[in-house]
Amino acid sequence: MLNNDPDSAHYPIDASRRDLVEEFRRAPKGPHSRELQMVLHRLRWESPGGRYVLVTVEPGKRWVLGRLPGVRGAPVELMRNKTYESLAAAEWDVFKLRWEALTGQAIED
């Protein structure tokens, strides 16, 4: 038995650091500053239950947002109203969703 702990990421996110939001928005694939790396790790290290994922509709062209159920055998929840034409657009959208969920502050486009 050797499993990852979904609750082990605890770096505190400073909601006032909108410069980091802008840095991510400019270059979602990085490379990122050290501070943004830590923020991204905090955002990305979450339980499979409810985790955002992309589902490929057309390889390299179109993706739909989904959420993992966190339970074996249960289907992935597809959010069919959220589709993307680029991975960068998807990364940005999920960044905003997670940032708001963790800080309570929405990011306006």
């Binding site: 694939k29 589902v55 989904g66 991975l87």
Partner: peptide, 11 residues
């Protein structure tokens, strides 16, 4: 360092 991209096979 990026969102997981699942296929129909993964679903």
């Amino acid at each position: 360092e990026g969102l997981m991209v699942l296929s129909r096979d993964d679903l």
